[in-house]
Amino acid sequence: MRWNYLIAGATAAIVGSTSGHATTYMTPAQARVAMFPSAASFIDRNVVLTPQQRSVVQKIAGIPVRAPKIMAWEAVDAAGKRLGWVIVDRVLGKHEFVTFALALDAGGAIKGIEVLDYRETYGDQIRNLKWRAQFTGKRHGATLQLDKDIKNISGATLSCRHVTDGVKRLLATYDAVLSDHG
């Protein structure tokens, strides 16, 4: 096992960087198919919450609604029978911006959750400058293309609580707007 250090040369570039780690896993279209492989088609059911619905959702979920517009699709089979729903939303965590898709079955129960896009927002708040200064000039190595090449990261564990909260909000949205009794 060899511990390779980064490096004085890249330090300046890192300090100036404003983009953190970012990964795109799937597009909404890919997620729809992955979550409902047997669906024949997906019908647009985009939601724009009225101020009244917005406050209902907020009340049920216990967390604020960030944007009134939500992307949603109804998955139907070849006979036109409803298989379920796919809803796409975004959450802003302390250090990350996450787009995720929630699949619900025809009865409104959770069928799956996929992260579509994950962006860390650390780059704009550089800390530990004093700390970093101790590295400068001490290590050698090549500059890495951070966003392109480095995608497996081991660090302090980041909480997924914001996504869990976002799922709660979408369940409330489904209940208030999309479901048959909504």
Binding site: M1, N4, L6, I14, G20, Q125, L144, L146, I153
Partner: peptide, 12 residues
């Protein structure tokens, strides 16, 4: 990743 800032620090 560096603690706190999550800047890349070492590579293995």
């Amino acid at each position: 990743a560096m603690p706190g800032s999550r800047e890349p620090l070492a590579m293995v």
